[in-house]
Design a protein around this nucleic acid. Structure first.
Length: 780
DNA sequence: GACTGTCTGATTTTT
DNA sequence: TCAGACAGTC
């Protein structure tokens, strides 16, 4: 395969520079829709075709599993086409079907399979399956290669158990949620419990560190890891074992990272360790046969709640790069030409994001026509908003034969917003898909079956054991379990080992002992099949023999029927996985499911897509509806008082705008039902930041011409004079408060000049305010 | 040990 | 609004 690849001719000069980059560090600043996925796939192909890099020396990190799969497919296609030309002198699609298949499977075997492509989490999990037994943490905790990956709810309950039962703390003061969050943050900084303690001097911090330590004990006892540890533990291992590090440093000569703006500290550490073999980045000079190639856009950094830090991207030039100014640098390329959206959409995006202060200077340059104006709709409430969106969809779909349902997307800030749209879509019989929300793998019945599977693979997994030992009911109750748990604890062995001690179990009353012995026998039977049977077969066995399906059938409700369907769907997933991955073993399937998400099998082709803005990252749609642009909802109320958080919300809005190819609709409601009660809602700050001349609207006056929230960026935004004294306030008036943002007057106390206002601020609540003291701006 | 009803309390985003 | 925790009853 020595021919010079001709696909390079399709690229613009910056793309070409990125794609042809061979060794050394390179940062690609890639605006939305600038062809960054293309740059990544072409570069990987180019490394292999032109520079004869062995595919197994290439590590490519994507943000989702879906992106990983697509990248592999694209690369496969490129190579297959190249081979078709080379071997047959024809385009791939002109070959006979068998020849195509043959070519593709040849490419799969020699190119795409050996490539290391995946998310940080899946790649790390894969490495840990090989290396984790060489690891021991600072307290001597150890894990085995068949470790379980715990999901968020497993983690929550472990932490709750520690807070409440082990440390006897008040779980109102130490909410498991927030403790969990603090621990996760520490992990994403790369801290172990001791390091967290050293960094937290107050009482609360010390308690959290203590919970963290006990939590690690629990994880180790269950032979389990959480998401964060998949990365952190690998980093620790590489730090403490030079031999292992050296090996993988040699292996991964060329590393590529997509969505680099959303990497966190540990992910960065991992990258740095592997790239430099542990040398300080600034002293690392040995770039002769290796590269680090990162692609990202600081304006699309939207995961700081997951400890992502776009400053890592901003620091690349100083860190790995030559640190030279934009004109002279050889380690940074900007992709600014946008091939996705109309000029109007891009201008809206550019002006919006220009309100942020922390950025790498970059604009989206249009390559297409102006297109239609952006339409902004004010609805009375969320139901009218939904009506508006659906009528637009129906009209457009009917008047434009080239459009199908899959060309429409409804994007919102929070999952709860999907409901009104779903109801409307059902009423009009429009097919739709909701991405996210309650995930398939989070459903109770799925978790039950997965717990069986996890326990089969990893008997130390007591979390799973406790979940299934009495599901369906077998008469093994709390008292029995508690007794066995205590015994296990005393002996320092996993609960499972206690259960397998026949003599110990027989000391229990026969009524308790019998079902336990039966359960153990059943589990052992399946454990014996792990090596020989496929995942799908084992699942089948569980569904039949455990009595799980029988139990559901006996319930006879619609809900139970749904559950049976879902559980069978899981079995299908196992079959499908085996087909796609040529590995039908249970451990392999299980490792995959823990890291899978709904997003991974989104059917974009045939149905209207409903999803959060976060889930929409990386996607594009001809027609986009960006809904719920209301103060307190978007930007979310939790970010209202924090300028940095507002900037992140703005980036999120920017992501939403830049998903649209042809048409963009924006909407907001004057009133919204949230958790039972109706709340008044004010137009979002972001609406006021959009260029008016590109906006069509049904109510221009609804959009404040000034930012409704003055306590924001330090930029030289002009402020209104305080004029509250002269005002006569009335119930129903809308106003802006410096701290709380937009609100509506609900009561007036007193009279004349001595009045107080009760003001309801959406998402914040009611506040009593003296307008003679506090600066308030009325909004018309 | 299983089941039922009441109550609370939490509601951003997710690999 | 709604799910999960918990107490009380059979």
């Amino acid at each position: 395969m020595s021919a010079i690849p001709d696909f390079l001719s399709h690229l613009n000069p910056s793309q070409r520079q990125a794609v042809e980059h061979f060794c050394g560090p390179l940062l690609v600043v890639a605006g939305a829709g600038s062809g960054k996925t293309r740059a990544l796939t072409y570069r990987i192909s180019n490394l292999v075709m032109r520079h004869q890099v062995n595919p197994e020396n290439i590590l490519a990190v994507t943000f989702t599993n879906k992106a990983a799969r697509e990248m592999k497919e694209r690369i496969e296609k490129l190579f297959a086409e190249q081979l078709a030309q080379q071997d047959h002198g024809k385009a791939l699609e002109l070959l006979a079907p068998q020849q195509q298949t043959k070519l593709r499977s040849q490419v799969y075997k020699t190119i795409t399979k050996p490539l290391w492509i995946g998310t940080f989490h899946s790649l790390c999990a894969r490495l840990l399956r090989m290396e984790i037994e060489k690891y021991q943490d600072e307290k001597g905790r150890k894990w085995q290669r068949n470790f379980s990956i715990f999901d968020e709810s497993d983690v929550q309950s472990l932490i709750k158990d520690i807070v409440v039962n082990q440390l006897n703390l008040d779980d109102r003061k130490f909410q498991p949620r927030s403790v969990r969050f603090a621990i996760s943050n520490a992990k994403n900084q790369g801290w172990n419990p001791q390091e967290l303690e050293a960094n937290q001097q107050d009482f609360r911090g010390r308690v959290v560190a203590q919970v963290y330590s006990k939590y690690q004990d629990s994880l180790a006892a269950n032979n389990g890891l959480d998401f964060d540890d998949l990365i952190r533990v690998l980093v620790q291992l590489l730090k403490q074992n030079g031999q292992v590090l050296g090996y993988w440093h040699q292996q991964f000569r060329h590393m590529l990272v997509d969505e680099y703006q959303d990497t966190n500290r540990t992910q960065y550490d991992l990258l740095r360790l592997l790239a430099t073999n542990g040398t300080d980045t600034r002293n690392f000079k040995d770039w002769e046969h290796r590269s680090v190639f990162v692609v990202g856009d600081a304006d699309q950094s939207i995961y700081s709640f997951r400890a992502a830090d776009f400053k890592i991207l901003m620091g690349f030039q100083q860190d790995f790069g030559d640190g030279l100014p934009d004109g002279d640098t050889r380690t940074m390329v900007k992709l600014e030409e946008n091939y996705r959206s109309t000029e109007n959409i891009l201008q809206v995006a550019n002006e919006l994001i220009d309100n942020n202060t922390e950025r790498i200077d970059k604009i989206l340059k249009p390559t297409r026509g102006a297109g239609e104006p952006i339409y902004c709709y004010r609805a009375d409430d969320e139901l009218h908003e939904s009506d508006f969106v659906i009528q637009q969809i129906r009209t457009l779909e009917q008047s434009h034969p080239e459009l199908s349902w899959g060309d429409f997307a409804i994007l919102y800030r929070t999952n709860a917003q999907s409901r009104a749209f779903e109801e409307g879509l059902v009423r009009w019989s429009i097919p739709y898909t909701v991405v996210g929300g309650l995930k398939f793998y989070d459903r109770r019945e799925i978790k039950d079956v997965l717990a069986y599977l996890r326990l089969i693979v990893n008997p130390a997994d007591t979390v799973s054991l406790k979940r299934v030992i009495n599901t369906p009911r077998r008469g093994i109750g709390k008292t029995t379990l508690d007794r066995l748990m205590n015994a296990a604890q005393e002996l320092g062995v996993p609960l499972w080992e206690m259960l397998t001690e026949e003599t110990a179990v027989k000391t229990l009353a026969a009524r308790s002992a019998k079902p336990i012995l039966q359960f153990v026998e059943m589990m052992r039977h399946w454990q014996g099949q792990v090596e020989t049977q496929s995942a799908a077969n084992i699942i089948q066995g569980i569904l039949e023999d455990s009595g799980y399906v029988r139990d559901l059938k006996n319930q006879g409700t619609d809900e139970a029927d749904d559950r049976i369907g879902n559980v069978q769907e899981l079995q299908n997933a196992a079959l499908q996985y085996a087909e796609e991955n040529t590995d039908e073993s249970l451990p392999s399937f299980l490792a995959n499911t823990a890291l899978a998400s709904d997003l991974d099998d989104l059917d974009e082709k045939t149905t209207v897509s409903l999803m959060t803005l976060h889930a929409a990252k990386g996607l594009e749609f001809p027609i986009v509806f960006l809904v719920g642009l209301e103060q307190g909802l978007f930007p979310n109320f939790r970010s209202l008082e924090d300028p940095a958080a507002i900037e992140e919300e703005r980036r999120l809005c920017y992501v939403g705008v830049t998903r649209a190819q042809e048409r963009l609709f924006i909407s907001h409601a004057r009133e919204r039902r949230l958790y039972g009660s109706r709340e008044p809602a004010m137009p979002s700050l972001f609406l006021s930041e959009l260029p008016r001349d590109l906006l069509q609207t049904n109510s221009l006056s609804a959009i404040p011409s000034e930012p409704p929230h003055s306590a924001m960026s330090p930029g030289a935004k002009k402020k209104k004079m305080p004029n509250t004294h002269a005002m006569d306030w009335a119930v129903g008036d809308r106003l802006v408060h410096r701290g709380f943002g937009l609100g509506e007057v609900t009561h007036i106390f007193g009279g004349g000049n001595k009045i107080c206002l009760a003001v309801k601020f959406p998402g914040i609540g009611k506040k009593i305010i003296d307008p003679n003291i506090t600066v308030l701006d009325r909004v018309e």
